[in-house]
Computed example of a mutant assay.
Amino acid sequence: MTETAGWAGRARVVMLGKPGCHLCEDAWGVIERVTGELGVSRAREQLDDVGEADREEYWDKVPVTFVDGRRHDFWRVSGDRLRAALGS
């Protein structure tokens, strides 16, 4: 993928996941907690709702976390790493 997808910049933190993914639920819990504490916007995107190139790029990496439109992490989310990426 050569450029950041528009959906990845929908909020400061965006998680790309898929239904029924237990790692996605775990990651979203961390994202909700950290963004809630910091007052930062967050959004969830579903793998089925993004373009074909993004599905091919990320299908085996979900959940994928984006911060400020750039890929931050995949599979798991560390609260400390996310806070650092958000500048707190």
Rank of each mutant, 00 (worst) to 15 (best):
A11L: 10
G17Q: 13
T65K: 09
C24N: 06
E45G: 00
K18Y: 04
E37F: 03
R71M: 14
I31R: 15
V14Q: 00
V30R: 10
E56L: 02
V50E: 01
C21D: 02
A53C: 00
G6D: 15
W59Y: 09
L47A: 03
E57R: 11
G39W: 11
G29Y: 07
G36R: 12
A11N: 04
V67F: 01
K18I: 10
G87K: 03
G36L: 10
M1N: 10
V77I: 14
T4M: 09
P63M: 07
E56H: 02
A8N: 00
R83D: 12
V77P: 08
G36V: 09
R44I: 05
F74W: 15
W7D: 06
V64W: 13
R44G: 06
L47G: 10
E25M: 07
E37A: 11
E25G: 02
G9T: 10
T35N: 09
G51C: 06
K18T: 13
E3W: 05
T2I: 13
K18N: 04
P63C: 12
G69P: 01
R33S: 12
D68H: 08
K61R: 15
G87S: 04
R12W: 01
W28I: 01
A84K: 11
I31M: 12
V34W: 01
W28Y: 05
V14W: 05
D60N: 15
V34T: 07
T4H: 13
T65C: 13
V34L: 04
W59N: 13
D48P: 01
A8M: 02
A53G: 07
A11V: 06
L86D: 03
P19V: 12
E57I: 00
S41G: 14
V77R: 12
R70W: 00
V67Y: 02
R10M: 12
G17T: 10
T2L: 13
R55G: 04
R70T: 07
S41W: 06
G87V: 06
M15T: 11
V40Y: 08
P63D: 12
H72F: 15
R42S: 09
F66E: 05
R71E: 15
A43T: 08
K18A: 14
R55F: 01
T4R: 15
D80H: 04
D80E: 14
E56F: 02
I31E: 13
E57K: 03
G29T: 05
E52P: 11
R42E: 05
T65H: 10
F74A: 11
F74M: 03
W7P: 06
L23I: 11
S88Y: 08
L86E: 06
V77F: 09
F66S: 05
A8G: 01
M1C: 06
G17A: 11
A5G: 08
G87R: 02
E45C: 03
M15N: 03
A11W: 08
P19I: 11
S78M: 06
F66D: 04
K61D: 14
E45I: 00
V30W: 07
